[in-house]
Structures are given as structure tokens and as C-alpha cells.
């Protein structure tokens, strides 16, 4: 019933929202108490809220993000300073999630770790999406030799095991004196981004290949619009849906990748906490002090699942063909 909605290039741009030309027969057959929004963004949001788990996921991510951002004000403890007289205390009213092997409050470290882990996820995703979109757009729009060159390079990057290349890249990037953020966070973000733009590039290329043949692109070109502007202002907004979904899922996989790197000893270096390196450090005390492993693991788990549900919800909201 939604097949007519948001068809590529069927909308007219007014302000920031796409207004869809809808005929009365595309109205939902099921009665709804809320009127359906008429803008593209409003419609997507309306569909997103139908997906209950996605809304829950969004709330969870928002709460985790806010709690991490406000960590210095929420927690009375120091995240880094060792307090050897209270090592490995189990959860108690004083230390809600217990303390770690150096007597630091676990909840405090998890909140501070969340700042780093979530930032890594979001920053790596942003960089990867920017790179992937640039490569994919150029390849799909210009075609020919450029397309061939860029896509063969993408294939090449995909044929080397990611974790192996990540280790090399992290080692190399670490040897540069990159300022900003302690514990080599930026090097990790760069390394993860440099190795995860390929899937986005393929997605964007595929969309651009079909969109560039559409009449509205021809119209824009006839009006004398330049290539760059056609790509960014005319085609990209129509190719945005799959990019947004892929970007959301990329945040979760970046968090997982960072923890894998941390496990091999190449993640963010202690004492800067991330969920990944906390989990790795807890490895030796997994039996005697299970809370040091369980809670960081639980935060990764909940975050990743919440983000994946948000991604699912966005897919349903942005691409009505998936609604089944």
C-alpha cells in the first residue's frame, strides 16, 4: 500500500522537506487515529515509531549517550586513580557495580569508557560514510575508467583480512604524533574508518548508477547545473536511505571492532577506559571477580543490540519495500 510513497524523484522540494504528491487511493486502508504526516521526514518518523523495538533501542542509546556525556557530573569517583585498599569489591550500595583490580569504581569507568567507545563508533562511522560516499558517488556517477579504478581498489581492500590490516594500520598510525584525545583514540578511529568504507561505497555506487539515468538528473543538467552540485544536491538526497541505515549499523560494528582490537592489545591504551579494553583487562579475574567482565560486556551487548534495532526500524521507515 505504500509503494507509491517516496518514489525516487517523485517529490518536490520545499524548504527542507520533500513533499510527496499523493493521490487519495494511497491512503492507508487501516484506520489510524493519528493523521499521517505529509512530509517525507514526518512520514519516515511515523513509520519508525510503528517499530516498537526500534523506539526502545533509540531510547536506550539516548540514555547511554547522555549518561556517558554527563559522567563527570554523575559520578563522585575518579575514573583513573587507583585505590589499592578497595580492589575487586563486589557490587554494593557504595560502588554500584563493584570495583576493578585497581580499586576504581566500575560504573564510573564504564560511563567514561562509554564516552570513548561511543565516540569511536560515531566518529569512525562518520569518516567511513564520508569516504564511502565520495568513492561510491564518483564511481557511480562518472562510470568508465574512474568507476573501474575505484571499484577494483574497493575489491582489493575487501580481499585482505580486516583485522590483520587493522593491526598494521594501527601500528603505523600510532607512530605519528597525532594530538587530540588520549590513548591513541584518533588512530583507532582512523584505522577503523579506513577499513570500513568499502560496503558504503558499493551501496552508494549502486544507487548512483540507477539514479543518474533518471529524468530529474537530465533536467538539472539541462538547466546547466554542474556535476558536483548534481551529485550532492540532486542525487545524494535520493540515495540517502540505504546510507543512513548502513551508517547506523556501522556504529555498532565499530564498537565491536574496537573491542576486538583491544583484545589483541591494539585498541585504546589503558588507563583510558573503553568497554573493549575493560573487558580485556577483566579476562584474568573472570572467575574470581566476574562483575569486572560481565558489566562492560553487558554494556557492549545492550548498546550493539539497541543500535541494531534502531537500524532495523530505520530500514522499515525509510524503505517501504521492506515492510512485510
Amino acid at each position: 500500500m505504500d509503494s507509491g510513497v517516496g518514489g525516487r524523484g517523485s517529490g518536490v522540494r520545499t524548504g527542507t522537506a520533500l513533499v510527496v504528491d499523493r493521490t487519495p487511493d494511497t491512503q492507508p486502508l487501516t484506520p489510524s487515529f493519528r493523521a499521517r504526516p505529509q512530509t517525507m521526514a514526518g512520514l519516515a518518523w511515523w513509520r519508525f515509531t510503528r517499530h516498537r523495538m526500534a523506539v526502545v533501542g533509540l531510547l536506550v542509546v539516548a540514555v547511554l549517550g547522555a549518561a556517558s556525556a554527563l559522567a563527570p557530573w554523575l559520578s563522585p569517583y575518579d575514573a583513573d586513580k587507583p585505590q589499592l585498599q578497595i580492589q575487586l569489591r563486589p557490587p554494593s550500595p557504595v560502588h554500584l557495580l563493584g570495583t576493578d583490580d585497581l580499586g576504581r569504581d566500575l560504573l564510573t569507568r564504564i560511563l567514561y569508557g562509554g564516552r570513548i567507545s561511543l565516540s569511536i563508533g560515531v566518529l569512525a562511522m562518520t569518516l567511513a560514510v564520508l569516504m564511502g560516499t565520495a568513492v561510491g558517488a564518483a564511481a557511480g556517477y562518472y562510470g568508465g575508467a574512474i568507476d573501474n579504478l575505484l571499484m577494483r581498489f574497493t575489491d582489493l581492500m575487501l580481499s585482505i583480512p580486516a583485522l590483520f590490516l587493522l593491526i598494521l594500520l594501527t601500528l603505523v598510525l600510532r607512530s605519528f604524533p597525532i594530538p587530540f584525545l588520549r590513548g591513541g583514540v584518533l588512530a583507532i578511529v582512523l584505522a577503523i574508518a579506513l577499513l570500513s568504507w568499502m560496503t558504503v561505497a558499493r551501496l552508494v555506487r549502486a544507487s548512483f548508477l540507477s539514479l543518474k539515468e533518471q529524468v530529474f538528473v537530465e533536467a538539472a543538467r539541462a538547466l546547466g547545473v554542474g556535476n558536483g552540485r548534481i551529485m550532492i544536491r540532486h542525487i545524494l538526497p535520493n540515495a540517502a536511505s540505504p546510507i543512513i541505515v548502513a551508517a547506523t549499523l556501522r556504529v555498532a560494528s565499530s564498537i565491536i571492532t574496537e573491542s576486538g582490537l583491544s583484545f589483541l592489545g591494539f585498541g585504546v591504551q589503558p588507563p583510558t577506559p573503553t568497554w573493549g579494553n575493560m573487558l580485556k583487562n577483566a579476562q584474568d579475574q573472570m572467575i574470581t571477580a566476574p562483575w569486572t567482565a560481565i558489566f562492560p560486556g553487558l554494556f557492549i551487548f545492550v548498546t550493539v543490540i539497541a543500535i541494531n534495532y534502531v537500524g532495523d526500524g530505520l530500514r522499515d521507515a525509510l524503505d517501504p519495500r521492506h515492510l512485510r
Binding site: I256, S259, G297, F301, I305, N308
Partner: peptide
């Protein structure tokens, strides 16, 4: 969904 929620090294451990 739960298997995707944790890094594979955690399952290994």
C-alpha cells in the same frame, strides 16, 4: 540478535 551483540572473542572466552 544476541550472537551479534557481543564481540566474537567474548564468545570464544
Amino acid at each position: 540478535i544476541s550472537l551479534r551483540g557481543l564481540p566474537s572473542f567474548v564468545w570464544g572466552l
